[in-house]
């Protein structure tokens, strides 16, 4: 690990003041950043510890929820309002990592964790455009079973590893940011970029910008939501494919629906095309499969991950079937 300065921020303004230049990183629970620093993939000159800030979950007057960026993953998953009103979010968090890691990891840090692509981690032996722009990508022709089928580029085929972010994208979550130039907010589904020719840039965050909170809008039909994760072993593994979904059925028609996919792209993948196919139609298995097909029409397999297309198709249909009350 290369040497760095450590300081603790007393509040958000103090954190932004201390962030200085772009070679400073904010430190949350450290469960990904400390590991990346030990592997010398990340070499910040300074860490500003924000893990003590923004640790409340606030009920909003409109019926939504404001989740501080410093809230620990366990605290969010066990929160009574999340469990009853946004169960997909509890389910997604509980499907990720281990209990020890969830006790440490913050909500902000979970969103900003980096890909687990093995070539990205291999600072000594592999080429990676995300780690060193212009170097090349060894995953493209390498072991790419875990990699992207949607939205990838010749520069990068890595996937975003978060489960929580997939649920937040489906739940219309909004991310709140503070920076030297003020405050702004946008949908969680827009926070992460597709790789294009700049895979080294994961998100739309400006240097020094800090995630302070995630807002969940009041979505009464989110009480009927879930998260399903398909992985190589039944616990403590990253997703091959995951699906977060909400379904609102009235009088035999789908009034509204939200779907997001994990494990398939450089970002949590909001399945707008599938949602469009479903709205107004019948909540039937054939419609669910047609919606999945519409979303996956542009999917491009690599040598090792073609199975993900069929897996995503079946998982989307199964999750929607489960929410519609069918056996899946």
């Amino acid at each position: 690990m290369t040497p760095f300065r450590y300081s603790r921020a007393t509040d958000v303004a103090d954190a932004i003041r201390q962030s200085g230049d772009c070679n400073t990183r904010y430190l949350g629970g450290g469960t990904n950043l400390v590991d990346l620093m030990r592997e010398t993939v990340e070499r910040p000159e300074a860490l500003v510890d924000v893990s003590g800030l923004s640790r409340d979950i606030e009920e909003l007057p409109d019926g939504g929820l404001l989740i501080g960026a410093g809230v620990r993953n366990t605290a969010l998953a066990e929160h009574r309002s999340v469990r009853t009103r946004y169960p997909a979010l509890s389910r997604a968090i509980l499907a990720g990592a281990s209990a020890q890691i969830r006790n440490m990891a913050t909500v902000g840090g979970n969103l900003l964790q980096r890909t687990r692509c093995a070539y990205f981690y291999d600072d000594d032996g592999s080429r990676c455009n995300k780690r060193l722009p212009g170097q090349g990508c060894d995953a493209l022709e390498g072991f790419n079973r875990n990699h992207a089928i949607l939205g990838a580029s010749p520069s990068c085929v890595a996937v975003h590893p978060s489960d929580m972010a997939v649920a937040l994208a489906a739940l219309d979550g909004v991310v709140h940011l503070h920076g030297a130039r003020g405050e702004r907010s946008f949908p969680v589904a827009d926070l992460h970029r597709l790789p294009g020719d700049r895979p080294d840039v994961d998100t739309l965050l400006e240097p020094g910008e800090l995630i302070t909170a995630i807002e969940l809008p009041p979505l009464p039909f989110a009480a009927r939501s879930t998260y399903r994760k398909v992985r190589d072993r039944s616990s403590y593994a990253f997703a091959l494919v995951s699906v977060a979904a909400l379904l609102d059925v009235e009088d035999g028609r789908i009034r509204d629906v939200r779907i997001a996919l994990g494990g398939v792209a450089h970002k949590p993948w909001r399945a707008f095309k599938a949602e469009e196919v479903l709205r107004g139609g019948p909540p039937r298995a054939a419609a669910f499969t047609a919606a999945a097909d519409a979303e996956l029409a542009d999917a491009k397999p690599l040598a090792g991950n073609g199975f993900k297309i069929e897996l995503a198709r079946r998982t989307i249909a199964a999750v929607l079937g489960e929410l519609a009350g069918e056996t899946a």
Binding site: Y6, V34, D35, A99, I101
Partner: peptide, 27 residues
């Protein structure tokens, strides 16, 4: 493993279990 994969370094901090290998002591 010293990388958060095995749990052998688990300790309790104020009663909560965490991984001490991924924790900077100063925090």
């Amino acid at each position: 493993c010293n990388q958060g994969a095995c749990g052998a370094c688990t300790v309790l901090v104020d009663g909560e279990r965490i991984l001490s290998c991924l924790a900077l002591a100063v925090q």
